[in-house]
Simulated scan of single mutants.
Amino acid sequence: MAKRNSYYRGPVTDHFDGTHFFNPGGILPFGFASVLRWQMNGNRSRWPRHVDLPQGKAKPADRVTGKDLRVTMVGHASLLIQVAGVNILTDPVWSKRVSPVSFAGPKRVIEPGIAFEDLPPIDVVLVTHNHYDHLDVRTLRRLQHAFAPRFVTPLGNDTIIRRAVPLAHVSVLDWHGHLAVAEGVRVTATPCHHWSARGGRDRRMALWAAFVIETPAGRIYHVGDTGFHDGINYRKAAETFGDFRLAILPIGAYEPRWFMRGQHQNPQEAVEGFKLCKAAFAVGHHFATFQLTDEPMLEPLEHLGLALDAAGIERQRFRPLRAGEVFDVPPL
């Protein structure tokens, strides 16, 4: 009997076979035997149990207007983007763990860089995919109660959000779909090389995506998780949209490479992607918050700096933000 997709039903496409989503020409996620091989390799680095916020908690302004563009790091893939009078959160997680249960699973080693109570009015929440470190229903419930924002997410993830947050205003997009979220601000879902699952029986049953945010202050390319995939998606983004004022790119959770290369790029690949998508500036994320993989906590920072030096790119153009750090992106 064919497996049924409990999140999404729709026509077959170049990235959906009727039951599962997939990366065209890409790498499928490994199975249980490979997970065991990785978990038993003995190469997992030791992270500290707790790290203080380097600069304390940020207290954002209510709005950022005109040509200004400000990004504040909450932690991991959770960022506050303030542009054109609109406040956007990406993959928001304020929970202590990223797990289906509250008592086990990867635990936060650093507090959120913004206290939830200090958030400005949130207009839009972008959820890139359904892994627990990106789609945290506990946080989404809090956001709904506090701000009733518009949630924007790829196909199938809307089912998960609506089950947990019944009153949520959810807009769902396929790759290349778009919608206006405010006057002059448009969000488009674009391909990235990843996968999805909330458990062992729903692999690849909800779509994953990056987002392009077009604003009067410039274009923003936000990638939650991705394997490099020979740079295909970066090239396509530049071809479709032109250059970007800012790219927000993952730089962590990449070791061991034999296991992670299809789902998480490393810092060297992030620098190559930065070049390929023709961004003026970049923010690095997805590191130093939850230990998901084997590399040391701050290794992504070191490797990013070395990769930028090797590419002849000034380090201030690609900023790896720690929790609580604020980046006022220079104008083009």
Rank of each mutant, 00 (worst) to 15 (best):
G324I: 11
K96W: 12
T65C: 10
D158N: 06
K107I: 01
I161W: 00
F147N: 09
H176Q: 14
I122M: 08
E239Q: 15
T215V: 03
F16K: 14
G10C: 02
F147R: 10
V181Q: 03
A84C: 05
R138S: 14
P100V: 03
A197Q: 15
T289G: 04
L173P: 06
A180R: 15
A148G: 09
M40P: 00
I88K: 06
R201N: 13
D230H: 13
V125R: 02
P29H: 02
D118N: 14
A288L: 06
D158Q: 06
G26M: 00
F228A: 09
K96D: 13
F290A: 04
Q39V: 07
R201V: 10
D230P: 03
P300S: 06
P166G: 08
I220Y: 01
Q265R: 08
N23P: 04
F274C: 05
P216Y: 02
S196E: 00
V51K: 14
A84I: 04
P106Q: 07
T226P: 07
R201T: 14
E117K: 14
V326R: 14
V98F: 09
G105H: 04
A180I: 12
R201Q: 10
P112G: 01
R108V: 03
Y132I: 04
G200H: 12
Y234L: 14
K67P: 12
G324C: 07
A33I: 07
L292V: 08
A247N: 06
E295K: 10
A182Q: 02
V51Y: 03
L321P: 11
P24T: 11
A217N: 09
H134F: 03
T128S: 15
R317F: 02
A279Y: 13
G85C: 02
E272M: 13
F147G: 04
L167G: 14
H50Y: 14
G199W: 00
S34T: 09
Q82M: 09
F259N: 02
V172K: 04
V71A: 07
R142S: 13
A311Y: 00
E295L: 09
S78A: 15
M40W: 06
D243N: 14
Q39N: 13
H286D: 09
E314L: 05
W258P: 00
H76D: 15
L53N: 02
G10H: 00
P121Q: 12
L301F: 08
P296A: 08
V64K: 05
F318N: 02
H20Y: 15
F21M: 12
F318E: 01
R4E: 09
F151I: 02
P320A: 12
L69W: 08
F281A: 10
L135P: 01
R245C: 06
P296L: 05
S171H: 12
P296V: 03
K67C: 07
T190M: 12
L207D: 15
P267I: 04
S45F: 12
F32C: 00
V165K: 10
N130Y: 01
L53F: 05
G218C: 08
I232K: 15
R4V: 11
H176V: 04
L321M: 10
F16Q: 14
R141F: 04
G25D: 02
A197P: 04
E269C: 06
A280C: 10
S95G: 12
H178G: 09
F244H: 01
D158L: 01
L292K: 08
T19L: 10
G25T: 07
L135T: 08
F241G: 15
G312E: 01
K275C: 11
K67T: 13
D14E: 15
Y254T: 01
L143A: 09
Q265Y: 00
V98H: 08
